[in-house]
Design a protein around this nucleic acid. Structure first.
Length: 799
DNA sequence: TAATAGAAAATTTTT
DNA sequence: TTTTCTATTA
């Protein structure tokens, strides 16, 4: 990863090395050795750390100390003087993993790790290599990294330019194919004949080529290119390859089971000279096949690297024997695996078995989970140690709804990312055009945001001109303001905008970049646009913009910031508040919790029908691995649940328990008999839970949730700070719900509403309606479609 | 050109 | 059910 403080990469400009055997070097070695880092390892781990030479495959089961092995191995390399920090290539998949490794190596060697320039994600290291040799790929070193959204928009243009019906052949689909080819390491010329016919009657490859050509013109690379282009450079330029062979004495790869073909080829090429490559992974945790990961890479390792040492880590330090037993028995149903069996030495006769329970529908499921969590809480467990892991994100909703009602703190991990939000992308587009005038995609995004009277017609004219002259849009625009091809109003608007960009570009040299960022957002009228916006999420968006500018402070230039933002996808704001985590199974990989709740184990949902249809047995095995990942996240307690009915796309469907449920071993499972334990008002009937007509004001004020809400409030729990904190990683949806919790509490106080009787309002759920009566901030509204409802004024907007 | 209403489509997982 | 796109109208 390219961290904030990473130094500029100038070939040949290496940081000064401590002289091997010199004072600094010996002192460092002594300190590390004094830490006795090897003694803390079990025999298998120690073997994995000490087998420094030649290819090594470490098959590390869940919770067996994989990261410890990787980091200790690096510390060992450094301590024994085998390699200096910048001679080690260490690749991970996520920025988080890279960060953690850096941190833990630092702990091992007793200080801050410096000089490990080549520890990072595949993508950031790929970007680094590509920037050093950009000209070999037809790019300039300052190229832009496009995200998925930009990619799709670009492909849309290419499809249109080729005169292909964009409805029949959606850009998204083309993006899928191109992604697939890039994952396999195939440039347009390498795509096999048959493959090219999959899109638009055989024009797929042509479009791929056109897309690549367009990227070069835009001086841009997409995510696939960050792997594909370096691979091509290494293949076609032996001198460059030799340089890296010389440089990388040792290579380490984390999560090897997740590598795709391109990454594999890239690693093999780099490792072929010295062969000091150590891959750590777990075939049972390969869950990214759908985006090109090849489990085969890990299954084939010994063939690819003859004479490889294979070490299995099976001693688990995380979970109870029941949890391990359940997970192992389940995963044993898979055929394609190298085979490992986790075991633990820890004996705990008190340990709970894996609980399996069912519910009537997803709402009852959420209710039951809420109960389970409250019970855990009563037993003194903190919410931070509880996680709900779902297969698909739509499942999160019912839990969020329920937890808001209960006043139970939760956080959604994953979700819509900070950088993906419209306002952030808009702001970044402004910065990108300033930093890179040729960035047409960014320019197009903001020409008319905020509205300046530059509509589709004008943009099309600009496009025609740009294409005819072979120049970027900004340049075409500059030419066209001198002509009368565009109408006067749009022409003035464009002239003003271009003048602003010129001005900001000058200020790029003279002003600190954070200050410039504020100026840009202010002068462009962008912040004003949101200030004028009366919708509920406008204030949050402004807050996000502030946060964006604040986060820029960590960087020393606009360019450095833009590089970071395109590569670092995670917004890892650690929340201090105690809260239940809700996330997908995929994003739970690598995490662990005392209690893990696994809802939605139903055929069609988990295993996902779509995966089954698309990938058959292979897909089923991947789903099973996902289940395995889920169970092994738990240290002490795992709760598996399924519901008999679930609403999908607004339709109720009855569902059958997942086959995975029956694949669990009886000996480690406790089946919880159906219980209508919630509430006392015998509503086991269909109706009540299906149609949520219950009024939020009927909350009993003595429930744990209510008490908690009161406590939170008196402690200033729901203040702006905590909301802002959640806003960073949970969507606007959940954010709003937090506000809801607050207002329910305040409604006791009464007061006058900002609305008037008879006013027409809009409500997210119920649609349009007229206010019938007002009681404090509670409104009774006659909705056009939904009839008379009582709602809080914060839920409605003036219409 | 911009706002609006109504229809159609989409729903897994993400560096 | 919700979101996104499209066509219409002002």
């Amino acid at each position: 990863m390219t961290g904030p403080a990473s130094r500029a990469i100038i070939p040949g400009d290496e940081p000064p090395a401590p002289k091997p055997g010199g004072i600094a070097d010996r002192a460092r070695g002594a300190r590390a050795a004094g830490g006795d880092y090897l003694a803390k390892l079990n025999p298998e781990q120690r073997r994995a750390v000490e087998a420094l030479d030649g290819p090594v495959l470490v098959l590390a089961g869940a919770g067996t100390g994989k990261t410890r092995v990787l980091t200790t191995r690096i510390a060992h390399l450094l301590a024994t003087g085998r390699a200096r920090p910048w001679e080690i290539l260490a690749v991970t998949f996520t920025n988080k993993a890279a960060r953690e490794m850096k941190h833990r190596i630092g702990d091992l060697i007793g200080g801050v790790l410096e000089g490990m320039e080549w520890l990072g994600t595949f993508h950031s290291i790929g970007a680094k290599i590509l920037r050093r040799h950009a000209e070999l790929a037809g790019l300039k070193s300052g190229f832009t990294i496009l995200d998925t959204d930009d990619q799709i928009r670009l492909m849309k243009q290419i499809i249109q330019a080729a005169g292909i019906d964009e409805k029949r052949w959606p850009a998204r689909q083309l993006a899928g194919h191109i992604d697939h080819w890039k994952n396999k390491g195939l440039a347009p010329k390498d795509v096999p004949q048959g493959d090219g016919h999959v899109f638009a009657d055989g024009r797929g490859v042509k479009l791929y080529a056109a897309y690549q050509a367009r990227l070069k013109v835009l001086n841009a690379a997409d995510f696939g290119d960050l792997i594909l282009e370096p691979l091509r450079i290494l293949r076609e330029h032996p001198d460059v390859l030799a340089e890296y062979h010389k440089r990388f004495r040792y290579m380490l790869v984390d999560e090897y089971q997740d590598t795709n073909v391109a990454q594999y080829l890239w690693l093999r090429l780099l490792a072929q000279e010295r062969k000091n490559i150590c891959c750590v992974g777990d075939d049972d945790q390969s869950i990214y096949g759908w985006r090109g990961a090849e489990v085969d890479n890990i299954l084939r390792f010994e063939k690819d690297f003859p004479g490889a040492t294979v070490i299995r880590l099976e001693r688990n330090y995380r979970s109870t024997a029941h949890i391990l037993g359940a997970a192992s028995h389940l995963i044993a149903h898979n055929e394609s695996r190298l085979g490992k069996t986790l075991f633990t030495d820890a004996v705990d006769p008190e340990a709970a078995k894996v609980s399996v329970a069912s519910s009537w529908d997803s709402e009852e499921e959420a209710r039951a989970v809420g109960e389970e969590i409250e019970q855990l809480q009563r037993q003194g467990h903190t919410l931070n140690e509880i996680a709900i892991l779902v297969r698909a994100s739509f499942q999160m909703r019912s839990f969020e709804d329920r937890f808001v009602t209960l006043g139970l703190n939760y956080r959604v991990i994953g979700g819509p990312r900070f950088y993906e939000r419209a306002e952030i992308r808009d702001a970044l587009a402004y910065f990108r055009v300033v930093a890179q005038p040729a960035d047409d995609l960014a320019f197009e995004r903001i020409v008319n945001t905020p509205r300046r009277g530059i509509g589709d017609t004008t943009v099309r004219l600009l496009h025609d001109r740009a294409r005819a002259r072979g120049v970027p849009l900004t340049e075409a625009a500059a030419e066209m303001i001198g002509t009368d091809e565009i109408n006067a109003r749009a022409r003035t608007a464009i002239r003003d905008l271009l003048a602003s960009f010129d001005r900001w570009r000058e200020q790029l040299e003279t002003l600190p970049h954070t200050e410039l960022a504020e100026i840009i957002l202010e002068e462009s009228g962008y912040t004003e646009m949101w200030q004028a916006d009366r919708s509920a999420d406008a204030p949050g968006r402004l807050e996000n913009l502030k946060e964006l500018v604040r986060s820029m402070e960590e960087f020393d230039s606009m360019a450095g910031f833009l590089e970071h933002i395109s590569l670092v996808m995670d917004t890892d704001s650690e929340a201090s508040a105690d809260a239940v985590s809700i996330m997908t199974l995929h994003s739970a990989k690598g995490l662990e919790f005392d209690s893990v709740i696994l809802p939605g184990w139903e055929e069609g949902l988990f295993p996902s029908q779509r995966t089954l249809d698309e990938s058959g047995r292979v897909g089923l095995e991947e789903e099973r691995r996902l289940a395995y990942v889920g169970i092994t996240r738990a240290r002490k307690r795992a709760y598996i649940r399924f519901a008999s009915n679930r609403r999908i796309h607004g339709l109720w469907q009855s569902s059958v328990p997942s086959r995975f449920v029956d694949e669990l071993p009886e000996a480690h499972v406790d089946v919880v008999e159906e219980s209508n334990s919630y509430g006392g008002y015998g509503m086991g009937s269909y109706g009540e839970s299906r149609f949520d007509t219950r009024d939020p004001f009927q909350n009993t004020y003595s429930t744990p949730g209510w008490k908690r809400a009161q406590k939170n409030r008196s402690g200033g729990g729901f203040d702006e700070a905590s909301q802002g904190g959640y806003g960073n990683f949970s969507g606007p949806r959940s954010k709003q719900r937090f506000i809801e919790g607050d207002l329910v509490a305040k409604s006791v106080v009464g007061g006058s509403s900002i609305y008037e009787t008879g006013e027409r309002v809009f409500h997210q759920k119920f649609g349009y309606g007229h206010i019938a009566t007002i009681d404090g901030n509670k409104l009774t509204i006659d909705f056009d479609k939904a009839g008379r409802k009582r709602v809080l004024d914060s839920f409605v907007e003036r219409h």
